[in-house]
Amino acid sequence: MSAKQYKTVGEEAWKNNVEKVNAELFIFTYGSLVVQLVKDYEDYTAVNKQLDKMGYNIGVRLIDDVLARTGLEKCADFHSTAEVISKVGFKVFLNITPSVQNWSSDGKEFSLIIDDNPLNDFCELPPRAVQDGLWYSNVFCGVIRGALEMMQMQTEVYFVRDVLHGADVSEIRVKLVKVLDEEVPANDE
């Protein structure tokens, strides 16, 4: 399947199969969640970690939902995986399509460039949070990591730069560590 086809799939799914929720409700809910985490943990690195964990738990559930809605088949290679994340995943849930860029030469790493992150609306980080490296939308990283893990891909996903830190676009780096074999979980009787 080509990138264009994925785009059509994403747009179709967004139009027909998705229940929409008020954007502001969503943005404020997420905002107050992050702020509460900041208050509870009092450490921005710990907040990043928690957001990533939450995202992971969302991702492992979400992936089935996406595949069921769109009827996509297994991706042939990591390049098409990237296209699906951007043109189907982000499109269906957030109505944005980050661009896929900066492929590494071995084809195992790429960047998602987001220039209109809806979560950033209204948000302005306090200088301290920028300094200590709070990634406000770190939940995305977890979601991608969780979703890919369910597809037998172990990945590292992290923010490289963020509009809220003063960069002109946000960049999420996705790195494929290894393809997991289908195996029985360690503590599964």
Partner: peptide, 19 residues
């Protein structure tokens, strides 16, 4: 209003945002 909508701003505290 936009300042109030910022999740990091607490109502009735000083507005320190440089923006």
């Amino acid at each position: 209003l936009r300042t109030l909508l910022n999740p990091f701003y607490e109502a009735n505290t000083s507005i320190l945002s440089q923006a």
